[in-house]
């Protein structure tokens, strides 16, 4: 059998994977090993598969994904820190036929933007909210986040998060699941092929809900690693995430079709 040339390999019939054209060719600004890039790709694949390329407006946050608009090849607005849900509210109200999503990290969505998050989820805006939770402020250099685990070391909790003085980690996703305005609430991960597949299914369901005109927020949390902030190798950070983050932030659906999923 003759050896495949490059030209053979890139023939459509020989390709096992094609990057969605809704991801730009810009070099990702994320650290190698970070989950943001995978989360970006899944959202863009879903938008492309749903045929919403020309009908979508995304809102970028402040944090590691502040430059998300450099990579997500759709119309984008860059919001102030924490305000993406308010920005998305107006866009969806003024363009009810468009697909609108916000993309935020845990500092953005669960600390400075708590008010907007709660009220958008309570009003039941017809948007998709993507929430990347890595338990730390990555971009500013690894400070404590609202989601930082007890005793976890960060640059502003150098001896570990002391709950008595620094407060408890906030389970924002459990909180919004209780609100009548959320329709679909789920927590996923992107650190293994199987987790990626499940995340994509969840993201597709979220966007499909909006496309079907179902009132209410579809809220997808993705628990992700921050190997730089956690000061670990990417592999170690994924192991640490499984051992420490997942027991606290349990993966799976919290609310489906407007109904709370009972805890197993």
């Amino acid at each position: 059998m003759p050896e495949l040339t490059l030209q053979d390999i890139i023939k459509p019939e020989n390709q096992v994977y094609v990057k969605t054209k809704l991801m730009t060719d810009n070099t990702l600004s994320y650290c190698p090993g970070c989950g943001h890039g995978t989360a970006h790709r899944l959202i863009m694949e879903v938008i492309e598969e749903l045929g919403r390329e020309n009908e979508t407006i995304g809102i970028a946050p402040v944090g590691c994904s502040v430059l998300a608009y450099e990579f997500l090849n759709v119309d984008m607005q860059e919001a102030a820190h924490g305000r993406a849900p308010a920005v998305a509210t107006a866009i969806k109200r003024l363009w009810p036929g468009k697909t609108v999503f916000s993309y935020q990290g845990d500092g953005d969505l669960a600390a400075i933007g708590t008010s907007e998050t709660i009220h958008v989820c309570n009003r039941g805006e017809q948007i998709v909210m993507i929430f990347i939770n890595n338990g730390i402020y990555g971009m500013t250099g690894g400070q404590m986040a609202p989601t930082t685990l007890p005793n976890m070391k960060t640059s502003t909790s150098p001896f570990g998060r002391e709950v008595l003085t620094m407060g408890n980690p906030l389970k924002m996703t459990e909180l919004v699941a209780q609100l009548p305005g959320t329709y679909y609430v789920t927590r996923q991960a992107v650190h293994t092929p199987s987790a990626v597949r499940k995340s994509k299914r969840a993201i597709r369901k979220a966007f499909q809900n909006q496309l079907d005109g179902i009132p209410g927020v579809s809220f997808v949390e993705i628990v992700s690693n921050c190997n730089s902030g956690w000061k670990m190798t990417p592999t170690d950070s994924n192991v640490w995430m499984e051992e420490n983050m997942f027991p606290f932030y349990e993966l799976g659906d919290l609310k489906v079709n407007g109904e709370i999923v009972p805890k197993k």
Binding site: A80, R83, A86, A88, T89, A90, L94, S115, E116
Partner: peptide, 24 residues
């Protein structure tokens, strides 16, 4: 015309950021 009572002035001005950005 849409009228929405926001949860704060911070939210209303950011709704304007979103809405104004759509050209409306």
């Amino acid at each position: 015309m849409i009228v929405l009572q926001a949860e704060s002035e911070v939210a209303s001005i950011n709704m304007l950021y979103g809405g104004g950005g759509t050209g409306k």
